[in-house]
Amino acid sequence: MTPIPIQQATRRRKALRAWFDPRGRGLGFIAFALQRITGLGLVLYLLLHMAVLTTLLQGESAWDQFVAFAKSPIMLLFDLLLIAGILIHGLNGLRVSIVGLGFGVKQHKTFFWIMMLLSALLFVYAGWLLFAH
């Protein structure tokens, strides 16, 4: 087996372009991309969340200011986005774990839609909690 010399830079450029080319892609790619995008979003949120919690160290008035800000409509929309990300990443991740161990492989698409339906239902419930309370 003789390896073929491939220019690393060309490979990387092509690789990045392939990531953003949705043509000819199916449901599986969409699920895979969703998992990564929501995952990266949640990592950023983790850092943001830590930064926000650090304001607790500055005492009560700083925290109260944040709580007031967090209840503004824009922040509530941001919360909705966060909840959608958590639900999609968590439930699709559960599916990937199960299918990834060889179970329900043939039904992976149906499984994806069931998880998305579940995400949608929980999202509506969470949205209701968020805005009604």
Binding site: L56, E60, W63, D64, V67, A70, K71
Partner: peptide, 14 residues
């Protein structure tokens, strides 16, 4: 969040 009225705890509550 969910069991807390208003969704966020007050300082002392946290």
């Amino acid at each position: 969040h969910f069991v807390v009225s208003g969704g966020l705890r007050t300082f002392q509550d946290v």
